[in-house]
Simulated scan of single mutants.
Amino acid sequence: MSSWNDRSPLPLRALQVFEAAARFQNFTAAGEDLGITQSAVSRKVSELEVILGVQLFQRSGPNLFLTPQGSALAVRVTYALGDLNRACAEVQPAAKSDVVTLSMLPSVAAKWLAPRLGQFTDLHPEIDLRISASRDLVDLRVNQIDGAIRYGAGQWLGLVAVWLGAETVCPVCAPDLIDKLGVTTPADLLYAPLLHADIVEDWAAWFRAAGLNDPQVPRGPKLGDDTAILQAALSGQGFALGRSQLVADDLQAGRLIAPFEVTLEASFSYWFVSPTEPGDNLSLVRDWVIKEFNRC
């Protein structure tokens, strides 16, 4: 079996096809997005697996899931391709007044914004919307960013902040994991694989809300980014504490389920911020974001 190293040429087309397959969790949908056949997607993914020497997808009946290696690669490839797209766009001539750049967390970009981008483009084809995804608190003025979707208490010095919405946190998992592990009560999760995040609303807090005093929360993988955590949950690796704004689409589509009604109120909310009162195009973007958050 061949393998890739840092002296080998990057299999860019295979990585592009893999990114689409990972995003849709479906080879047919990925092919439609790329304008190629389902079999072509399957071939490119197989080629990439041979090059890397790892399995990227696994099947469970009709369902397709990323392996842990596939999940890790998908996060990095998504960011890398996004950077390449932005680099190409930046060297193209464009009317400055038509460009709106938004900053947000990578998880918000991937799980909330990305599925809705087509709606925005259809509604406002005249606006060149660009996304800067970062876990760092970006200085909007220094980085020439027009606005941002931020997660916090709403107090950022020198910025105009508009409240978008709050959220709740609750356990989510792949649909077949419940029957596989025989989980029927919150206490059963004390013996299940748990995925941990760096949020205030942790598993100990949720177990207490579910009526379990002084729970001995089992250890498990801790992933710093919500995108990686939810991808691991989607591929059946364990239970995650899902933030309602980020899991809404997966719950609606049945890719994830929330087995218990016990929820935690999140400590922070989402806000739309800008250095000044937004101009025409940024106002259109802000109004659309507000509308979509209200719909969620």
Rank of each mutant, 00 (worst) to 15 (best):
S134W: 11
D198M: 09
T101N: 11
K222C: 13
G61M: 01
E201F: 07
P186M: 04
V142D: 15
V285T: 03
E261F: 08
L264T: 01
F18D: 05
I257W: 09
A258T: 03
G70K: 01
W112Q: 10
C170Y: 15
L212R: 10
I145Q: 07
G61D: 03
V108S: 10
F18S: 05
I149H: 08
A253E: 11
V183Q: 01
E201G: 01
K180W: 12
A161S: 06
K180G: 15
P106V: 00
R150M: 13
L84T: 09
A114C: 09
N5Q: 04
P186H: 01
V108M: 02
A166D: 14
P171K: 01
N5S: 11
D122T: 00
D83F: 11
L137T: 12
L64N: 07
V54I: 10
W206C: 10
D98T: 12
F27V: 04
A110P: 12
S244I: 07
F18K: 05
D280M: 13
T168Y: 07
A133T: 02
V289S: 01
W112R: 02
L164M: 03
S60H: 14
G70V: 03
E265M: 13
S244V: 08
L164P: 02
A232D: 11
L241H: 09
A133R: 00
L282N: 09
F120M: 00
E277C: 11
V138D: 13
L181I: 02
Q216V: 13
L282K: 11
L157N: 13
C173F: 08
P115E: 00
R116W: 02
L181V: 05
D198H: 10
R59N: 08
T168V: 08
R150Q: 15
L241C: 05
R286T: 04
L189E: 02
V289E: 05
V77I: 04
D250Q: 05
V75R: 08
A192E: 02
S39P: 14
S132W: 11
V142C: 12
K291A: 14
N63Y: 15
F24M: 11
L102M: 03
L81Y: 02
R130N: 06
V172S: 05
V160H: 07
A110H: 12
G182I: 03
L123G: 00
E32S: 15
H124F: 00
T121I: 00
T67I: 07
R135A: 15
N63V: 13
L15E: 09
T37N: 04
S103R: 04
